[in-house]
């Protein structure tokens, strides 16, 4: 099977979404470290790009599979429009100054495709996804509270010199950032290439004895698109996030990043799912969750320890509003876009 150059054109919307994800969400992982000057942007960008690609290729299949169950898009133009409408929803919400999540945008877009194609949306899968959007920030907040309590308990007993504590924090920020980038790649790669996987647009690639499937190549391409976003556009966003979280101490910032990374990892880890299943425990669904909401959940958790008055309720309200509007907007744009592609351009979208 030969590679069709038109495929690249159709993939561009997903890659654009990947670029936007790298530009924005890398700031959730390394923004605090760069903003507080604990780490240079260059080092952060290199570590982030490397681990995003690794996460996408090694552990990205789990969440991608869940998105596939929500809506199995069967034609490349349909997948193109689904990813494009998610990207447009993200772009317009960002322009409007509202916090946005690519995970919610892509889910909304897939539901739009389901509406257009008259395919029923799997209510079990949808409920699973929606529930994780609520659980994700809460879980992140709970983890942050536990971690900060444990940190304070240990700090009082260990009496580490301030300058050494700073050095340990620096290393911990790098490790937490690497875990965060890996988890971001593993969890959010589904948003970038998930809708293209069922279509199998790229022929398998054979190098020696290794055969790379269409899905594996897509995961790598998506990971590289995220890495490109990190390198070309994340600096400004990282600095902004650093400033916005300026009220947090370096310790609180570190704990926020660790909590965020752990939550993203939990919702992407097939190993953890298999282990829980083997132990007879309820499994955690492998669902793409919002990196921004995981971070916000952790910050709110830390703020709760300082008293409820420390929480900026207006900002929280904006986040919740963005959370509701993004999938609806993506769903609507996808429906309209598919209509145009099919009826105006005569393309097969189903």
């Amino acid at each position: 099977m030969l590679f069709d150059p038109l495929v690249l054109l159709f993939l561009s919307s997903g890659l654009f979404l990947g670029w936007a994800l790298g530009a924005n969400d890398a700031a959730n992982v390394f923004g605090t470290a760069v903003g507080t000057k604990m780490l240079s942007w260059r080092s952060a960008a290199i570590i982030c790009s490397l681990f995003v690609v690794l996460g996408a290729v090694i552990s990205g299949a789990g969440t991608t599979h869940t998105l596939g169950k929500l809506g199995a898009i069967s034609a490349l133009p349909g997948a193109f429009m689904t990813a494009l409408s998610a990207a447009l929803a993200v772009f317009s919400m960002t322009r409007a100054g509202l916090p946005v999540s690519t995970s919610q945008a892509i889910v909304g877009a897939i539901i739009g495709w389901n509406f257009f194609s008259n395919n029923p949306t799997d209510s079990v899968v949808l409920t699973k996804i929606l529930s994780t959007w609520i659980i994700c920030p809460i879980l992140s907040g709970v983890i942050a509270i536990i971690l900060i309590k444990a940190f304070k308990f240990c700090a009082k007993r260990l009496s580490v010199h301030m300058v050494f504590a700073d050095a340990y924090k620096r290393i911990a920020l790098i490790l937490a950032g690497a875990l965060g980038a890996y988890s971001l790649g593993a969890n959010n790669i589904a948003n970038v290439v998930g809708v293209f996987i069922p279509v199998q647009p790229i022929p398998p690639l054979t190098i020696g004895t290794f055969v790379f499937s269409s899905g594996q190549q897509l995961l790598l391409l998506g990971g590289l698109a995220i890495a490109l976003g990190v390198f070309t556009y994340s600096k400004k966003v990282m600095m902004t996030v650093g400033d916005q979280l300026g009220n947090l101490s370096a310790t609180a910032a570190l704990i926020a990043v660790i909590s965020h990374s752990v939550v993203l990892f939990i919702f992407a880890s097939r190993g953890l799912e298999a282990w829980l299943s083997n132990m007879g425990l309820p499994t955690i669904p492998l669902v793409p969750v919002s990196s921004s909401q995981a971070l916000v959940g952790a910050v709110v958790g830390i703020s709760i320890l300082q008293g409820l008055s420390a929480i900026r309720w207006m900002v929280l309200g904006k986040i919740v509003f963005g959370w509701i509007v993004t999938p609806i907007l993506a769903c609507f744009v996808c429906f309209m876009g598919l209509f145009f592609l099919q009826n105006v351009f005569g393309l097969t979208v189903l």
Binding site: T36, K37, M38, M162, D166, A250
Partner: peptide, 9 residues
């Protein structure tokens, strides 16, 4: 200042 140590303190 040159080694950017303990930036927050």
């Amino acid at each position: 200042y040159t080694n950017l140590l303990i930036p927050d303190s």
